[in-house]
Nucleic acid binder design. Structure first.
Lengths: 231, 231
DNA sequence: TTTGAGAATTAGGCTAGCCTAATGCCCTGT
DNA sequence: ACAGGGCATTAGGCTAGCCTAATTCTCAAA
């Protein structure tokens, strides 16, 4: 007889959507998302997070273990995946239909994802041919809420001598993305790991066209690769 | 030395954008927008409007004459026209590029207009070839903030025997728009006014294809026409 | 010229989200 | 076993926007 039970789906606010997305990303490797990690990701103060976590666990979107952290409930996960689908479809659409640069789309999508209707997203997805990856190579959840989980390894971890395909660029910084694109380090490119300097030094790779690149550790950690050795 | 003077452009909130748009529409025939008209248009209580009007006149976006009403300042008008441009470009884009129905685009655009960047709007406008009218025939303000002001007359006011072109449909109700489209009463259509029943009765028109339509007064008041007699 | 209906405003209160300062909990290192 | 650092939470406050109830203003009609 109380509101929480009766109301089926009070639409989520922008803030709530952002918190859910953060928790999803922070728990993608399993475990709990901590208050301070969420606070840092959303650029708010930790007490703001504590307050929101309380609200969200009351509405059943997250599970909160005080002083430990939070995890998404199935319902929260569904909502988070929906937001991520929106975000990645938007990025894809802006890139391929409106000529946006892959370094710029993140910010734009971040604002739009809270305002687009389901219908618009599906129209965009349709116009794009139901893409499976966004411009950065990240998998796009299906409308049903399924997301591909690939076993990827960062370029910094690859074995010297191995061959990989750059699958996903885990970054959203405009300048870094511009630089990477200039270097030809974009999803889908084939890389052969030629060498790696010691003490967290750069990795040297050969691209498909035979040219080589020296990739510092900071960037190498953002380049998620799929091995193609054994296949 | 105070904040209002120093800060160049504190970005407007969604609410503020909506209020400015309302005031623009309510003052388009000149005069003042009243508190209760704004309240009705935005579906809020009159005191909410009074409060907002106070804020907006303090920030220089409107001119408030207490107990009389409000008007936009040049700065407020600029902001309002920018929102209207966004709205109409969005409607146009959704209609022609994503297959939305002209009856549905209003709601969608209403949500998106607060979230899109200037850059995205200009990309859309570009992709559309800088359209001058939205799907309902309403003029789209230029990026510079100019808007066409046409002398239009509603179909209910046209002289029997005259010839007109349906220029703009002043409605945003989905069902009515669907009905009008079915009847072929869409912007650009050529109409000859054959007859009008007395006592606010319907207007009978002939379309370009020779078929006739009986248009009740309620709808006829929404159909803005341009005369083509004298030309 | 007064009066009263109707519109506008002021008074006072609520929620969502944010903040800082104060307090509480947990765990590791001695 | 416990002291202290570090993270989390609670306490208390703020703004934007909304609300209802009470008050004030305006103007037209008697």
């Amino acid at each position: 007889m109380n509101a929480a039970i009766r109301s089926p789906q009070p639409p989520l606010t922008r803030s709530v959507e952002d918190y859910l997305k953060s928790v999803f990303h922070l728990t993608s490797q399993g475990g709990f998302a901590t208050t301070s990690d969420i606070a840092e990701m959303l650029e708010v103060a930790p007490p703001s997070v504590s307050g929101m976590m309380k609200r969200l666990s009351e509405t059943g979107l997250i599970e909160h273990v005080p002083y430990r952290g939070v995890q998404l409930t199935p319902q929260g996960r569904r909502a988070a995946l929906q937001m991520i689908r929106r975000h990645r479809i938007l990025e894809s659409y802006l890139t391929s239909k409106l000529g946006f640069d892959w370094g710029d789309v993140h910010v734009e999508a971040e604002r739009l994802e809270h305002a687009v209707s389901e219908k618009l997203i599906e129209r965009m997805a349709d116009a794009l041919g139901e893409p499976r990856y966004d411009p950065h190579g990240a998998p796009i959840p299906t409308a049903a809420g399924e997301i591909e989980e690939a076993e990827l390894v960062t370029l910094a971890e690859t074995a010297v001598g191995s061959s990989v395909v750059l699958q996903e660029v885990g970054d959203e910084n405009t300048e870094r993305l511009h630089y990477l694109a200039e270097q030809g380090l974009i999803p889908g490119v084939h890389l052969t790991v030629i060498d790696r300097q010691p003490f967290n030094g750069p990795t040297i790779v050969r691209l498909g066209d035979g040219t080589t690149r020296v990739v510092g550790q900071e960037l190498a950690l953002l380049l998620f690769c799929r091995s193609i050795d054994g296949e």
